[in-house]
Design a protein around this nucleic acid. Structure first.
Lengths: 146, 146
DNA sequence: TTCCAATTTGTAATTATTACAATTTTATTT
DNA sequence: AAATAAAATTGTAATAATTACAAATTGGAA
């Protein structure tokens, strides 16, 4: 794969030694913007890397997080979701289908006013919950039929 | 206690039948703004209501949530935090001491632009992470001594 | 009082995550 | 290249949060 060079560089830039497993996990995150959990990543990679251990996936993701190479998303009780896009952006979790959507057009939240109060901000999460367009539509239609 | 009337009313307003246990849980939430987890609530109430089961605390909180009587906070891996204040407001989680602070002076996030895209918003969470004033101060001082 | 439904309780099961020791891989030194 | 040290991976066991569920209890309606 040509883009494995991109993955290696990304890891090195964040001070992370690349290994087969770490590259696979990071590669999965870069190619899947659906905020996967450990289980999802493990299930996807396990067939290719037959010896892969779930602990390794945990290790890799925790390391990525400590080095600022991924963002974490504590949005529900289904476990931590991971995102290779570390730029601040919002999320929308559909309470019906469970999908998590990215929201890129939100206004920036202030850091300065909070830091003026003495807080040191290192992360900022904005997250909506409700019904996604598809699920909201179904909801509306079924209630019309009543 | 005089304010048990307030608790009963609050539960009834949200269509929740009051019981000894439910009143205790809601009373705890109203009197403790520190976003407790199930464990914290159970540990606090257990001595008073000796027969209290942790399952009952879960049942009560899930019911409260379904009826919109409490807000939930999935801010870390320590389990769900609960908040009797359902008004939209921000939170700050200190990565050092673990405390969660309320932030009331944040600008309102837009609902309309998101709903224009077809999303139906029912919750909106804003959450910062970093170091709280006390922990940030200690950090600064100790690095000065180096 | 009797009966039915709702609630509570305790235990067991499930799921996410971490702890940890043993093995394997990778890098370093000779 | 061989020997050694360090880092990473693996598998299993432990921990913690939450849910499932059946039995016991409570509270209201007939």
């Amino acid at each position: 794969m040509e883009n494995s060079i991109k993955i290696v560089n990304y890891l090195l830039q964040h001070g992370i030694r690349p290994s087969i497993q770490r590259m696979a996990v990071m590669g999965y995150l870069m190619n899947h913007q659906n905020h996967p959990t450990v289980d999802v990543i493990y299930a996807a990679l396990s067939p290719q890397i037959r010896t892969l251990s779930k602990t390794t996936v945990y290790n890799a993701l925790n390391l990525f997080y400590e080095h600022g190479a991924v963002a974490t998303l504590d949005i529900d009780e289904k476990g931590t979701h991971y995102d290779a896009n570390c730029e601040i952006h919002g999320h929308f979790k559909c309470l019906q289908c469970g999908d998590i959507f990215d929201l890129f057009n939100l206004p920036n939240l202030p850091f300065d006013t909070i830091e003026a109060d003495g807080f040191k901000v290192s992360e900022c999460h904005i997250c909506y919950k409700g019904y996604c367009p598809a699920c909201a539509k179904i909801e509306t239609e079924s209630s019309n039929h009543k």
